[in-house]
């Protein structure tokens, strides 16, 4: 299981769509999660991402993201009730620590858990983008919009796998020492080498003429059925999330008392998000190497 998201071409609708559209689709799912705190909507966004990942054939890769996202979510869940003392339902009376009362309430705990779930949705959606959208095409798009940002992004996207490989080699070398070195020592040396590596990569970019600042020509190509479906799904998800917010659907109050509305509108909104996320993958599959079919 990889801890560095790695793009591989696959015969899926998401992989075949143009980079801007595919990134927008993943961004829309992250947006739905970021905009709402309702557990049903967050769950729908997560289910949508899982279905999209399965449809794109990257289910295992996106599952790896959970191993990074869940500790973050747990941290947020734990910290929130310690920091926020609001809420009427007391679960645990912790007394005073450094002159501050520490009472754990049900409301603060649930609010923390929902914030954690939101973090999970955003991380997993961005992970899906990393494994299913061609970074070269995305950088090309960026270079047309913001040249300097694209330069930084180029360095960063290349540096991550290079450093991961360096760290893996160093960790193997550390196991060859008679007294194996600790992970901290290996991580410290790998990080210290990051500067050298970034200098090497920057030199390579210089030699490829990056300083000339030429912007890539816009490539005009007809929209494929995958482009159209994914763009429609992405736009619909964003519009639904905003409309639901404006209409007051999926309202949630955490303080002072927990109130989560679950009724037909919430269920319909959640079902719509899941359906829209899965819809582009229905029907005839994409073919590898026929990106615009």
């Amino acid at each position: 299981m990889r801890f560095v998201p790695t793009y591989r071409p696959r015969p899926s609708a998401l992989h075949s769509a143009r980079a801007g559209v595919a990134a927008s689709f993943c961004g829309a799912l992250a947006f739905a999660g970021a905009l709402d705190q309702h557990p049903l909507i967050l769950g729908a966004a997560l289910a949508g991402i899982a279905l999209a990942a399965a449809g794109a054939g990257v289910g295992r890769e996106v599952l790896a993201a959970m191993r990074i996202a869940l500790p973050f979510a747990l941290l947020v869940t734990i910290i929130n009730p310690i920091v926020y003392q609001e809420g009427n339902t007391l679960l645990f009376r912790g007394g005073e620590v450094l002159g501050q009362r520490v009472d754990i309430t049900l409301e603060a705990t649930v609010a923390g858990a929902l914030a954690g779930l939101r973090v999970v949705v955003i991380i997993v959606a961005l992970w899906l983008m990393s494994v299913a959208v061609d970074p070269d095409a995305l950088l090309r798009l960026f270079r047309r919009i913001s040249y300097r940002s694209a330069l930084t992004a180029s360095l960063a996207t290349r540096l991550v796998p290079v450093l991961a490989r360096d760290a893996s080699r160093m960790s193997e070398a550390a196991r060859c020492r008679p007294q194996p070195a600790g992970r901290l020592a290996v991580a410290r040396t790998a990080l210290a080498g990051a500067l050298d590596r970034s200098v090497d990569l920057a030199a390579a970019l210089e030699l490829r003429g990056y300083a000339l600042g030429g912007r890539p020509e816009r490539r005009r190509a007809a929209w494929s059925r995958h482009d159209i479906r994914l763009a429609a799904a992405a736009g619909s998800i964003v519009l639904l999330a905003i409309a639901g917010r404006i209409a007051g659907i999926a309202r949630i109050e955490t303080y002072p008392e927990l109130r989560i509305e679950i009724g037909p509108p919430e269920l319909a909104l959640a079902a719509a998000i899941v359906t829209l996320a899965a819809a582009p993958f229905a029907g005839r599959a994409a073919r590898l190497g026929v990106a615009r079919a």
Binding site: Y7, D134, P135, D136, A137, L139, R140, R143, S154, T157, R158, V162, R165, R197, D200, L201, A204, L205, R208, G209, Y210, L212, G213, G214, R215, P216, E217
Partner: peptide
């Protein structure tokens, strides 16, 4: 390994030409 800056071979070859306009 430090000479290659893009993720795909085709993009790697296209890059210098795109910079050259």
């Amino acid at each position: 390994e430090a000479q290659v800056v893009m993720g795909g071979v085709r993009a790697e070859l296209e890059l210098p030409l795109e910079h050259g306009g």
